[in-house]
Write a protein that binds this DNA or RNA. Structure first.
Lengths: 241, 241
DNA sequence: GCATATTTGTCCGTATGTATA
DNA sequence: CTATACATACGGACAAATATG
């Protein structure tokens, strides 16, 4: 497979995507990010410079620029004079991520910001816009009916991204999107995606319902309990794997 | 000035510094970061590849790797086929940063985590460790007595980093450190650093006192008011400059 | 509006040092 | 311990895009 030099349609998934026409290094980073997130490049495996640059049809220089991008996103790690490897999450990493999520997501639910920055300059009188949350819950349920557990997981992430958006900060959204990407490195270790995501459908619905009633305090507390449970599951998966 | 190829003592200030011996690109990034943060490279100025690589004594390829690191930290921006520029904060950027800070710092004060991750595995029974906050307040006051307004600013940042640390997540700390670096780009536009930092000495002390009394709720609310006031000042500076 | 100079984007070849079989 | 493979870093080259006169 080669990365075509100039055109290219990627870049949407990039946390740094602005209105900037992607350079080759950017597109290579996009390709590698996708491969890491889809598990084609598994945690701990080395991504060899020479081999990859040949496979992608780019120079080693360009590839190394792409590496720096993904190292900054914590998806790759650099070991001096040994090379670049797909990041491997350890238990403390997972705990740290969930501590982060508890702080951010609970605060976003407890103190949602009136105008959630994004477009449709809204009916933001008082109550926040929960339509993205509702859509994510609906999608998750539909996917569960179809037994499409991977899509249930995707909807779950979308729900929590939407919760983060209640905080009203674009860069917070971006940080959290990057953090969820990191988490996928650990999700891959979970043997049964159904057992992972299924129980959280009802929890998300409950959190949404409480927020919709304007009971931000209880909504936030339910989120905390959700995250505690999720952390325990992921930690278990990481420690067994 | 040249960047010596292998040894080097820098790297401490880097947000991504682990226990990793810095590569040349890392050290170049450290040098450039310092220059940007100290205002030697001013907002909006272009950092030309050829000129800089000659000045630093590194190849263009290595310099471009360093660029990617700093672009990821949002200190530089890349404009395709035009070059790399020192980031310039606009009003929406500043507002976004303060929205972020309100959410994180207020939440950290309202719900401090028992063991604040870092070493000294503590007397963390119940009450959080506020010694870093107290030290920052003391340093700020001492600097104010010496009329050292720049150091007052440094102590102020230290105070808020310490507040963030109450959240108990290392990567949250790292994100916030990076965010404060970004903010320095705007601080540079403020004509009178005394007028900027002086009024916040008393506020920080008050926030600390409330937290020390265990009144997390009011401490958090005081922080919110601090941040609203600070945002207004920085926005004014950005819009005038 | 056009021709030219400059700078970026990208590639290649290569020398050196470091880790590992 | 030697040998091999690989990462590190440099310099040169050329096309393409942008800035300049």
């Amino acid at each position: 497979m080669t990365v075509s030099p100039l055109p290219g349609t990627a870049g949407v998934g990039s946390p740094v995507a602005m209105l900037e026409r992607p350079t080759t290094a950017q597109r290579v980073a996009d390709v590698l990010r996708e491969r890491v997130l889809h598990g084609e490049l598994r945690s701990g495996t080395q991504v060899a410079e020479l081999q990859l640059s040949a496979a992608l049809g780019v120079s080693r220089n360009t590839l190394r620029e792409a590496f720096q991008i993904l190292i900054g996103e914590r998806l790759l790690v650099h070991e001096p004079h040994r090379g670049v490897f797909v990041r491997r999450l350890r238990t403390p990493d997972v705990r740290d991520i969930y501590t982060f999520r508890r702080l951010v997501e609970c605060a976003a639910l407890a103190h949602p910001v009136q105008s959630a920055h994004a477009g449709h300059f809204a009916h933001d009188a008082g109550s926040p816009d929960l339509s993205d949350l509702a859509a994510a819950v609906a999608d998750g349920r539909a996917a569960a009916r179809r037994r499409a557990w991977h899509e249930v997981g995707t909807a779950d992430v979308r729900f929590h991204v939407a919760v983060t958006a209640l905080g009203g900060s674009e860069r917070l959204d971006q940080v959290m999107r990057s953090l969820f990407a990191e988490l996928r490195l650990a999700f891959q270790l979970v043997p049964d995606p159904r057992a992972l995501h299924r129980p959280f459908l009802a929890r998300n619905a409950e959190i949404l319902a409480l927020a919709d009633q304007g009971d931000h305090e209880r909504s936030s507390r339910r989120m905390r309990s959700y995250l505690d449970a999720a952390e325990a599951q992921i930690v278990a998966a990481v420690e067994s794997g």
